[in-house]
Write a protein that binds this DNA or RNA. Structure first.
Lengths: 352, 352
DNA sequence: CTGTTAGCGCGTTCAC
DNA sequence: GTGAACGCGCTAACAG
């Protein structure tokens, strides 16, 4: 016995079962036929000693760790846990493990994405550590969809981005344009034609894509196009509040507002409330993100659910296939789906 | 050169710098003095070849991975990301890595904690995998504080629980009793004496401890003790709603309500709103958890913030010290702190 | 077909 | 400053 005090090794098993370590290995992995009797004996000893193979040694030899490095820009941001959950879902089914790196971006440098220098340093050291740990690949989870081209060098290891992208790497992104188009269709189907939109910051990709979906709906459904119905917010509640006040004071206010996130939708509710405008009777509201609290407000907000779990799952799946040499990169994007709640009703005087 | 196509190994560095691999290792780790000139040469080659040590090989020899296995019962539950963030915070400062396991309990078996059989299987396989990966220790993050004694066998590896505990292992728990006592003190200081409490499920530890804090405050501040002011909820909004209606219809309704979580506080607001009771003018409310949405409601809810980040940090710190042989187990519990917002005011006719 | 021997993967560290 | 054994499991080559 090599060392009775520490965990038993394959040698201990071999000795106790009167076989070579090779035989034990073959039994363990089914890599070759072993006579049933021998196999039984080996398995009995493994059981008896509660032997667990050392994955570190195994990985060293196999040059593969079955471990994926996940770089999260910030795990405390709402999108990240669900994405990680999706990654775990796939990982569980395929015996893949997760080495988690949390850049803690929100706490360390906030949302000022221009701090490229500092950011690059954090990211580089995260990648470097994961590479040292010999991960088989990496998944990068952003806090906000944006172009990260040139910021990260994965040094040849496969990497998949989600909730962020680069011009050269694989990325799993949901379909923003479809989402806002679908929200618009939903409102139009209920008789709305004068629909306002409160966007996020305009340097953000989702803002632009969702605006595209809005325009597309305006065109296809031949809605009256009025620039005053398009408001630029900043994702924060206060902007939803302020812009809704502006919209409500218009000579011809909208009958519905599409807010690009649930946080701004809170501001919409507040402004409407203060103005004595009833939601949904006088004004319909749709949010985005399906944040937990959107179900706790009065009225409960109808909102677009982001396919976060699916994004994580697909990112992991894509990475896994690339690692295994199947270049199964598919272009279809996960889609958002509308969660119908109580903040939308037909407009007054509209069709039923 | 052993293999020009794959990553350079210590051998490649040694060969190119005309030294032995031992010397390279000494340079890398500062384990021994190396003549400056030699050291320079080695460092230059390392730079030139962009050499990164293989942590897998290193771990195999050192019998230590500097990796901690984190077992989260469910990463999508609100407490978990912040706890993980705290773990990362400490880990970053001490070069510790995180191998994340997500039991996905909520999605797989829900909140029925009695499914012990299934649960035990998931937990055991998680531990087993982490052990195979040779983690130096483990942190267990529960979804709800409860006694897990006997459910998990860490097979001798150090393990620290947080947001859960066992009778034999180290656990980092926040101080529930102090928290509700402090919330009560805050209300009393503002003149409230008739204070109701809406608890969570009574088979839950936090419910009982917080009730203790309530009783302690009632006794110490000599508040009128009236059992009808003590309501048993179930953590869900509907129970907050229903029980508040009951409280408001009392002959002598309370002037303040302490809800054991923010979700039930939403129900309190709703019931008060329907009854035409103004918060905080007619009724004060304090919640628990400092959920993000508590700041989005009208009025913004005053609530107890849970020291989640600190719990993660302390769990990691404790584990690290145990691994290093410093049995630095401290009994002090992280404390909650009150977030003052707009849902508390002096009672009508109370002192200013 | 079954079993064994021995070298390897890569970095660490003791003895010289 | 170096040689070589070592940590542990895998697997090619070989023997029966």
């Amino acid at each position: 016995m090599s060392n009775p005090s520490s965990n038993p090794s394959i040698k201990d098993i071999a000795a106790r079962a009167n076989v070579s370590t090779a035989t034990v290995s073959y039994v363990l992995n089914g890599t070759r036929n072993v006579r049933p009797k021998t196999r039984e004996r080996v398995l009995a000893v493994i059981e008896e000693l509660n032997y667990k193979p050392n994955d570190i040694a195994k990985s060293l030899k196999r040059r593969r760790t079955d471990t994926i490095g996940v770089i999260a820009e910030d795990v405390t941001v709402f999108n990240t846990p669900e994405i990680i959950d999706g990654i775990n879902d796939y990982g569980d089914r395929h015996d893949l493990h997760i080495l988690l790196t949390n850049l803690r971006l929100d706490k360390r440098i906030g949302r000022d994405f221009e701090h490229t220098d500092k950011y690059r340093k954090y990211a580089a050291s995260a990648v470097s550590e994961l590479l040292s740990k010999q991960v088989d690949g990496m998944i990068y989870i952003g806090v906000h969809p944006r172009d990260l081209t040139g910021l990260i060098d994965s040094e040849g290891k496969p990497i998949v981005y989600t909730y962020a992208y680069t011009q050269n790497d694989m990325a799993i992104q949901y379909n923003d344009e479809q989402a806002s188009y679908e929200a618009m269709s939903y409102l139009v189907a209920r008789g709305h034609r004068r629909i306002a939109i409160i966007s996020g910051l305009m340097d953000s990709i989702p803002s632009r894509l969702r605006l595209n979906g809005y325009y597309k709906a305006v065109t296809e459904f031949e809605l009256p196009f009025d620039p005053v119905l398009i408001k630029m917010g900043d994702w924060e509640r206060e902007s939803g509040y302020r812009l809704t006040r502006e919209l409500l004071s218009l000579p011809a206010p909208p009958t519905a507002i599409l807010a690009m996130n649930d946080v701004m939708a809170v501001g919409v509710l507040q402004a409407a409330n203060e103005a004595g405008v009833n939601i949904p009777a006088d004004l319909s509201v749709i949010g985005f993100d399906n944040r937990e609290f959107s179900d706790y407000l009065s009225p409960r907000i109808t909102t677009m659910d982001l396919p976060l779990h699916e994004m994580g799952y697909r990112a992991m799946e894509t990475l896994h296939e690339v690692i295994n040499g199947k270049q199964a990169w598919r272009p279809e994007m996960p889609v958002c789906r509308l969660i119908e709640r109580d903040s939308v009703a037909p407009p007054k005087g509209g069709k039923p």
